[in-house]
Write a protein that binds this DNA or RNA. Structure first.
Lengths: 190, 190, 190, 190
DNA sequence: AATGAATGAGGTTTCATTCAT
DNA sequence: CATGAATGAAACCTCATTCAT
């Protein structure tokens, strides 16, 4: 693994463990097994690592979705998307926080759209196909709705895992209700 | 205004201006017009002020909604809720970020539910009445849906104002689409 | 117990627990159950409490010795003195440190002689009687020897209890050896 | 001189001048001519420097004794030891206090035995030889007596120089009496 | 490209002390 | 006499950053 990669991984660990505020470059370089000065050859500050971390995270979601979502009724595809986003939010609990927390408090907020673009594109495709197959309501605005869809699912996943720390049963309940909510919203009949 | 209140207000200002990372206790006490040591009589660290700030923010949303939402068709009430949350997110852009970024990176995440409780209760009431009036689908789970509803609206508002920095027209488009989305989701016919 | 007394007792506790360096007036007044400001009505600083503490300690030794030492052969009397000083050093381990530590680092070193005076007087008396009874060597200088005697015993007691943390057996060994040492030194035959 | 050494020397100066309580790390680094942060690369706190200082002091005593004590009657050797310890206590008055006051109020008390070990070993050797030469009493326990001997001499030296601030004549008197005391104690006839 | 000891600015934090009640 | 909230000076200590190697 090259130095840049090692810094990103170490940063993920340290941020997850200590939070952004208390994470230090010293600890990141220690974990990465490189010298203090070397960090500055790759990044200008600890927050400058955030976009790279965000990319790692979005890629995980995208990989999860693309590998698990199969052809079939849109309702079922949405079920899979919800499951993947919930699972990844749970598995990478701290990392999820990091994206929101870290990116927003930096000059790198602007990169957000770029980083999320591939995920949005993928969802837009899905909606487009659903529309063509008359599986979702015809006057759904695809671009806006992609954003609303992802936002809804992520916000609930974060809510249940990060803030409410709910038990498995309640989480399942939220998931089911969320599925009903978004399929209704899309007018997805099949 | 008592000292505690002055610290909270000053902290809101400083955090909004500098971001959490670069905000300092020194600057907060300067703005608050109190002595350095006095801060520590009320809070243990700058992040310990966050729950108090979050409360201020949730209260603003709640006040906005309760004062603006009138009796009428549920679809119209939801329109108002969306408008209020969008407006407040826009107006208190930085403060909104603060709640998510500040609370999550502290030991105070646990307070989240408590702080949001009044807002959730109010939405639950609204849904309950809608259900009784047969204005929304009968098998909607009120508790879960309240959370989903707020989450969806906030996530889109943050998206358009904080991350995408969209123009007025696009924002209006998102709002309209979001309204369609959630009314469909609730099966809200009137 | 009056306020002054309560401050002294609280100071003993806090100094013993935290050491002089880390002891604070705040903690002393907390333990004493009085207000911050009240401290200053009785003492000018935390170190100014030291002479009062030292007095408490010397009194304990003096009380112990005077109540336990009976008439009899000088060798036996010395045994009792050693036992008392060892016991008190053990029982008030931290307090013993305090006297040496606290007094020396203050302007109050001068009070030392005054505080120890009664103990020295008592030992001088003992030696005087021993000399008259021809139980100790005739050319022993009573004043100097009193100081040497106390110094030797205290230094060994501190050594074994405070620095070496020896086990009971070794301590007994030191005590026995010390008794032999000082009786020989005094030429105390009976 | 390396940085660590410079810190120790500066700490000795500052402690001697100001006392432990009022000594500050700031002043130590100033005297040492190094940066504030550099101190923390070598020691964790000002009291953490104490063991290093204690070592310096014990070495001075050991050097003094080993260089001045010559072969000859044990009584004469003891006279030299007393003289050396008295001289060093006088010369390094403040430093002597430091060892007792500084070490005891820290977690480093445990290092005491280690630091004093070389001095004890040297005295034990002396006693062993004296015993073999039948110059001291045969049933003297060497290990215990070494400790008693050092303790007695140091305690009197500290007494006269640090606490009582006696005049030269009285000090000479104490020294002579002390010599008589310990030679008698050891049963040292020659 | 990589190192890591040293830096020192500037934040945090403490706590003796005051003073209006 | 007694209080204790407030003070703010002054200490602590961290940690991003540099630079000679």
């Amino acid at each position: 693994m090259d130095k840049r990669e090692r810094i990103i991984q170490a940063a993920i660990d340290v941020f997850s463990e200590k939070g952004i505020e208390k994470a230090t470059i010293s600890e990141i370089v220690n974990k990465a097994g490189i010298a203090q000065g070397t960090f500055y050859l790759y990044f200008t500050s600890k927050l400058a690592v955030m976009p790279a971390i965000a990319e790692v995270m979005v890629n995980k979601i995208l990989e999860g979705i693309t590998s698990e979502v199969k052809d079939g009724p849109i309702s079922q595809q949405i079920e899979v998307i919800i499951r993947v986003i919930f699972n990844i939010t749970n598995e990478y609990k701290e990392l999820t926080k990091l994206i929101y927390t870290g990116l927003t408090q930096t000059q790198y907020v602007g990169n957000w759209e770029t980083i999320y673009a591939p995920l949005y594109r993928w969802i837009e495709d899905l909606l487009q196909k659903g529309k063509e197959a008359q599986a979702i309501h015809p006057d759904v605005n695809i671009k806006y709705t992609a954003k609303i869809l992802i936002g809804s699912i992520e916000s609930v996943a974060e809510q249940v895992y990060l803030y409410d720390h709910l038990d498995a049963e309640s989480i399942a309940g939220h998931k089911k209700e969320l599925h009903k909510f978004v399929t209704n919203a899309l007018g997805a009949y099949q």
